[in-house]
Design a binder for these strands. Structure first.
Lengths: 356, 356
DNA sequence: CCGATCTTCCAAAGCGCTTTGGATCAGACT
DNA sequence: AGTCTGATCCAAAGCGCTTTGGAAGATCGG
């Protein structure tokens, strides 16, 4: 068999070198900006390359250099709900910008979340990527150990809540954020505050719960498991969680919601009951600043702890590229503070529950 | 310089062949399932490969075969709003499933929408992908001509509303869907129906507008440009568009909204005015069936034309892989019908405007 | 027991780049 | 004139796989 490509055809280096009566070396160097070639021939080469529409074969270059100029991302699809968390697209958009600026491309693998390790392993070992971003670390995450062992550069978005093995990560201060948010509600007189959290095993959710419980305990309140929910970031999840909680004998007067998506469901559930956030009940969200779903308004519609996930994507990519360029440097870490903004969705606790 | 990889190291084919005292040929064939090798040696090879953790170098394989086993997607970021359309992540998730099932990977390029052509060209010519998916075709789309010229397999999600050049596409019947939706509102007595559409240049938006106008004309209504809005798929866009339209002297009694995201903004704008969809005013949306933002309920919260974007991603990927496997076959096309579901967000037109 | 036919394996030639280790030549300096 | 030094350029050796075109060895009918 001929190596396929029935139609696609572009000139290769050898042919171009014959046309130009120059060696392949010179052409390669001219095009890649090496100094060993005179400016006049460089110009000549570039002109010819344009004229004949010569493009180096990426796979050959990758093999020759040992660099793939690509970064891998594994996007898990919740096997339970078939949901792909919308924060990924936003994070990936941020990271993608940085890759593009630096001549890197991005390799995506969309896999059911229970098959993630396989996907990471495949990417790492096939050497088609020079580095990886690890998304949504869990407690005692396999992937971190595996990648450390392989020795492939990687950056974790978030932190393994387990033991602090040395690895590079970028995270927001989830504990601090949710502690702050809870304190805000407490100081407004709320005592029954529900937490509509993310999936229970994720590092994010664990830290957020911790911050929430710390604030409660500081005020002498024992965290009540029945006021906490864990789940996938879906609108319906927020709707269900809030609907259920509002049907209990002693419903919460305030909600802490892990993202704007379930918060929209939460708002809908409250609207079903004729309750208006900010007047009858309070909502604080964590706002990832999704580009298509902004917490806008003046004041913003939701009181929120805010941290741009897109910026996190950008910065994670930068860190990763730095690590790739300077592998000798040890792990880098970056913890981001979270902005707290007061919006329209919070108010004082109703008097009767307040005195309770 | 050594071809980098300071840490990462896995055994290569040559070394494994020496260990096994077999030729590289035999090992390659054994691992790739060719019949010219006995079952006993195949077992031996596989066992050794596992033991020594041998993984073929992907870039070498790609160069040798001429196949990259990768599909490219170019995701545009609106340079105006910095928005990445959330339907992409859903489409890509669907396509990604199919790629994974067939041993393909996905290469993503996130670029400002005005630099798309460059990104497509780079992907196509560097031969690091075996095919491409073209997203959001515009009228007289450059990319289609370019890819046809290059001869790289591709599938367009949507159709160029310009001249019907021969190319492969998968589309939903946007015209039919919006015609149907408009007719539904007309038959409920609505006469002033607003269209909150997508970006004006996109094939989707053009076809939807066409369907909307056809239905209006069928009922003797001249389409009114002042009732149409075009914009990025953002929550705030829906909010602004509806707020503005409701402030006019003769506001619409029904809205046709291009996606659930702006529809949420629309609903918020109406809530600001104390209006309840289904009772005071009507909304019909086009529902892409986003996994994290489902139009659920019984009946669903929004009356909608529904078509799963995830399924479209899956199917587009299948079509593309078929084309790659059988390049001699001509372009394939697939037009999907759209489901129409009546939900809670529509009702009869208010009496006063009805008689108007 | 011998040629024919499978079966099983191998040596070697790519794939299209990058990079090493010179070679060549002009100009500068003794 | 002879040597040295940069400035240019080149031939050839990889990178690690796949695939071609045989070559042995085993099997078998006659």
């Amino acid at each position: 068999m001929c190596p396929q490509d029935p139609n696609v055809w572009t000139m290769n280096l050898k042919e171009l070198s014959e046309k130009l009566r120059l060696s392949q070396t010179t052409i390669s160097r001219a095009l890649n900006g090496y100094p060993e070639v005179s400016e006049t021939t460089r110009k000549r080469v570039i002109a010819a390359a344009m004229r004949y529409d010569y493009r180096p074969n990426g796979n050959a270059a990758r093999l020759a250099t040992g660099r793939s100029m690509a970064i891998g991302h594994v996007i898990p699809v919740s096997s339970e709900h078939e949901v792909v968390n919308p924060i990924f697209s936003e994070f990936v958009a941020g990271a993608g910008e940085v890759y593009a600026l630096n001549g890197y491309s991005m390799q995506l693998s969309v896999v059911p979340d229970d098959r993630q390790v396989i996907a990471y392993r495949a990417m790492a070992y096939s050497r088609v990527v020079d580095g990886l971003i690890v998304h949504v670390p869990q407690a005692h995450d396999f992937r971190i150990d595996m990648l450390n062992e392989i020795g492939l550069p990687f950056v974790v978005h978030g932190r393994d809540p387990g033991e602090p093995a040395p690895y590079s990560w970028l995270d927001v201060d989830n504990t601090g954020a949710f502690r702050r948010a809870t304190e805000y509600l407490l100081s407004a007189g709320h005592r029954r505050i529900a937490l509509i959290n993310g999936r229970e095993t994720t590092g994010f959710a664990i830290r957020r719960q911790k911050g929430y419980e710390m604030a409660l305990r500081d005020h002498g309140i024992t965290p009540d498991r029945s006021l906490m929910r864990f789940g996938e970031m879906m609108e319906t999840y927020g709707h269900e969680a809030v609907s259920e909680l509002m049907q209990t004998i002693n419903p919460p007067t305030a909600f802490l919601v892990s993202s704007i998506i379930p918060a929209i469901g939460a708002r809908r559930a409250l609207a079903d009951l004729g309750l208006e956030p900010g007047r009858d009940i309070s909502i604080v969200i964590h706002d990832d600043d999704l580009s298509y779903l902004r917490n806008t308004g003046d004041p913003p519609m939701f009181t929120a702890t805010r941290s741009s996930i897109r910026s996190a994507g950008r910065r994670s990519a930068e860190l990763l590229l730095d690590i790739i360029r300077q592998p000798q440097r040890g792990p880098v870490q970056e913890l981001w503070d979270v902005e707290f903004v007061v919006g329209q969705s919070t108010g004082p606790a109703p008097a009767e529950t307040r005195s309770q």
